[in-house]
Amino acid sequence: MAATKEEIVSGLADIVNEIAGIPQEDVKLDKSFTDDLDVDSLSMVEVVVAAEEQFGVKIPDDDVKNLKTVGNAVDYILAAQA
């Protein structure tokens, strides 16, 4: 069953917390992974792979660079689930 938008945000918050040590409540739709959440380009790969596993989607390398904010990632996962 596809995850809802809220479930994806919450899941990403747990992943970012696990990988970058950022408190879950800081992971909001408008936050930039690199500028606001201390997720550098390599950590971003770990976030993406964890998200792929959790939400059962594929996020190719070429698309990773377009995921600037948490909102970008949530929208991508929602569309990929459909």
Binding site: S41, L42, M44, V45, E46, V48, V49, D61, V64, K65
Partner: peptide, 12 residues
């Protein structure tokens, strides 16, 4: 090298 692609392949 393409850093992110290499990193993903190398780690996972």
């Amino acid at each position: 090298q393409e850093g992110q692609s290499v990193f993903r392949w190398a780690v996972f």
